[in-house]
Amino acid sequence: MKKYKPTFNKPSAKDDQSVRAKKHLGQHFLTDENIASKIADTLGYEAYNKVLEIGPGMGVLTKYLLEKKAEVHVIEIDTESVEYLESNYLHLRGRIHEKDFLKHDLSEIFGEDQFAVIGNFPYNISTQIVFKVLQLRDQIPEFSGMFQKEVAKRICEKEGNKTYGILSVLVQAFYEAEYLFTVPPTVFNPPPKVDSGVLRLKRKENFNLECNEKLFFTVVKTAFNQRRKTLRNSLKSLNLPDNLREDAIFGSRPEQLGFQQFIELTQKIEPYAISNN
């Protein structure tokens, strides 16, 4: 079968610096072609044929996404980057969206279709990106990309570790999370002060949370807001009855509970939370 070849100019990320990285947007442009190719390969491109890249910059990752058998869209808030992409990636015309990913209604782009999300994410909004993906999880079967290493590790961490936290529980309740590889600062322009890490999330199919979702999020966030305390103390603000708080699970600290145990905890709390509303 003849390999699909999209129509676009393929500038070298190392040679072309026509877009200035902007500190207030958290931009660090990836300059290593091999790493860009590896990130593009992290998606399985199954069960969907549409991909959204967040913050493409000068398109070092975009060029490799365009070689896949998928309809690629990019969303970029930087006008200078948008102009660059429109000039150099002709195949993307009509699918370059000059919008803020965190604020834009993605149904205007994808309707109710399934789509994957990928990117070299700005560190300053990376956790907000994950929370929005969780909100849209019914449409996003796969998510991968580059984070600050510490954040990527935290998302994929298991219970019993100090770095395990809110993002770990909430993400792992709905997705299989895998830390893939570490990326050094030297392959970016300008180089960040820390290492980066690439992860992949694959949605759990036919998964039922089996508890009130809003309450589940509240319980997890409230518990980790005072992570050094036992749940008996950290969940005091939920005004739970004393007899419930004597349950053995409330003697644990939040970092000791996996996502399934947080679901069970929410199930125990749910009757009282409903009666208190």
Rank of each mutant, 00 (worst) to 15 (best):
I75C: 08
L106G: 09
S107Q: 13
I39C: 06
N88T: 04
I54P: 03
N34V: 00
I77V: 15
L85E: 06
K99R: 14
Q27M: 10
V74F: 06
Q27W: 12
I35M: 02
H91I: 00
K68H: 13
H104D: 12
L102E: 13
D113A: 13
H97E: 07
H97W: 15
G59I: 08
K38D: 13
L106P: 10
E83H: 14
L102T: 12
T42Y: 01
K38I: 00
H91T: 11
I75M: 12
E112P: 00
G55K: 06
I35E: 08
A40N: 10
S37A: 13
G57M: 09
I35D: 07
I39D: 05
I75E: 05
N34Y: 08
E98V: 00
E83T: 13
G59L: 12
N88L: 01
R93K: 15
D113C: 01
I96M: 03
E83F: 09
A47R: 14
K68E: 13
H97P: 06
G111N: 10
E86Q: 14
H104V: 01
L106M: 11
I39H: 04
E80G: 02
D113E: 15
V51S: 04
T42C: 13
L30H: 11
D41A: 14
E53K: 04
K38R: 14
H28V: 03
I109F: 01
H73M: 02
E46F: 06
L102S: 12
L92H: 08
T42V: 03
D32C: 08
K50A: 06
L66K: 10
E108G: 00
G44V: 00
K38W: 06
K69L: 04
F110Q: 09
E76N: 02
T62M: 02
L102K: 11
H91K: 10
